[in-house]
Design a protein around this nucleic acid. Structure first.
Length: 259
DNA sequence: ATGGCTCTTTCTAAGAGA
């Protein structure tokens, strides 16, 4: 089974790109972030025509996440628990049956957190604290659990073309990295880093010739419970998609699993 | 090499992204 995450940066502007990639790669489960539309505006019919079931957690203008799956959904969960007044649509989770067992796939769009001297940074940190509490509960289920998405987090110096340029940025601040380490310490492993020590970027800014200069960062991740990590065979970063017409600034990251 | 994009909106300029 192949499970992918992709920040699509606006589904309306990116539908042709998504359909082409789905048609070429035919992944089993895809988590999209930044769909930037309400649920009613999501082009489900075109995606269902390629054989996918679709679940969305949309929001007007900003944020918004979706799950696409060739397998039927046994369960769908929306919203990150822990703050009843948080209006931002940043989490959708699906449960699927494979070989008689449950596989849980949670798709997130973690807050960016910039600028750090505004309310956006403490919101990011609180969101990460809530996420870690949520993950603790999921790990107690002892299931194959994939937590994937745009984490807006650079895990280590190797994950940026120029780490020093990110010093002080919410994606690389000590407070953000500390909370990401907590996620790892709870038992979630970084799929790509468990496969390779090589540098691999997932985002290149639209500005300043970042793609041409390969001035990227790695912020899109698949984090795995022990039961999912045991079944991981490979991780592929679909870097070529960044060079397609009207690309997103992020590319798909896909894990291949033996279930 | 300090270069400067692309999305959204009861748009037409401004906020957000990272």
């Amino acid at each position: 089974m192949r499970i992918a995450t992709w920040n699509i940066n606006g589904i309306k502007a990116r539908l042709e790109l998504l359909l082409r990639w789905l048609d070429e790669e035919k992944p089993d489960i895809v988590g999209l972030q930044e769909i930037k539309t309400v649920d009613e505006g999501f082009p489900s019919a075109e995606i269902e025509a390629l054989g996918y079931n679709v679940a969305t957690h949309g929001q007007k203008s900003w944020n918004g996440v979706a799950l696409l799956s060739k397998l039927p959904f046994d369960e769908i969960n929306r919203r990150l628990p822990g703050d009843d007044v948080d209006e931002q649509s940043r989490l959708i989770e699906g449960v699927f049956s494979v070989e008689g067992a449950a596989i849980r796939v949670c798709n997130i769009y973690l807050p960016n957190g910039n600028p750090v001297d505004t309310e956006k940074f403490p919101y990011k940190l609180r969101w990460m604290d809530r996420l870690n509490s949520f993950v603790e509960g999921r790990l107690a289920l002892e299931e194959p659990f994939v937590l994937m998405g745009d984490f807006n987090l650079i895990p280590a110096p190797i994950d940026a073309h120029d780490p020093s340029a990110w010093w002080g940025d919410a994606l690389y601040r000590p407070e953000s990295l500390e909370r990401f380490r907590t996620l790892t310490n709870l038992g979630m492993s970084d799929a790509l880093r468990s496969i390779t020590g090589e540098q691999a970027f997932t985002f290149w800014d639209f500005q300043a010739g970042a793609w041409r200069r390969n001035a990227g960062i790695r912020i899109d991740h698949l984090m795995l419970s022990p039961q999912a990590a045991d079944r991981l065979d490979d991780v592929t970063v679909h870097k070529d998609v960044r060079g397609w017409d009207k690309p997103s600034d992020h590319v798909p990251v896909e894990g291949t699993f033996s279930f």
